[in-house]
Design a protein around this nucleic acid. Sequence first.
DNA 1: GGCAGCCTGGTT
DNA 2: AACCAGGCTGCC
Length: 221
Amino acid sequence: MASLERRGKQLGIVVDDGRALVVQLGMSGQLLVMHEAPATHRHVTWSLSGRGAEVLVFRDPRRFGGIVPHGRVQAMLDRWERELGPDGLDTARAPVERLCRGARHVKAALLDQSLVAGIGNIYADEALHAAGIRPSRRCNRLTHDEAARVLEEARRIMRRSVSQGGTSLRDHVLPQGDPGAARRLIQAYGRTGLPCHGCGLPLKGGRIAGRATTWCTKCQR
DNA sequence: GGCAGCCTGGTT
DNA sequence: AACCAGGCTGCC
């Protein structure tokens, strides 16, 4: 194995001969490095040279994930450039202007990987809550400052969460099999009916952009 | 845009 | 037994 590439939720494993594998974890996928491969939902097992008897395993109970081979790294990178927006962790390239365009709900735009890559349902709710913006707000009703703020909050929250090992609710685990610790940072996602940490009022739940959504009707406008 | 569908497993 | 879930694609 030569190197790893990543853009948003796409992970590229580049091997020495220049070919690449794109791993998409989907909703339940796991990449594990272990001495003994897990017994269930094991889809691919690679043996790792120079790491004793350890193996790299792609495990995916729900099978929403997948692996796409590319003959050359550049083909993978070209495709990412075509289909994905700038990575959500990238400050310099935050697509503020683009987020202000169109009549769709801002939450739908945040989940659109071709606009900004890497934001999923949890971080969309968290970023909108932190930025004080209702998920149902139309993009073309956002001020430039609001669009910048929500992208900045998404970046900050994801960065912090990743540094804690990620937001493990059910299936996400780190390569050694341990859950990430960022679940305790959650302010909004999945807290429908529980008090808002900003104002104390119960958070509202609903469906926006086809996804379970939680927000505060007072703190988020 | 929304929404069904892909799959399995956990919860109500 | 029915419903729900962290993602994404493709169809209306």
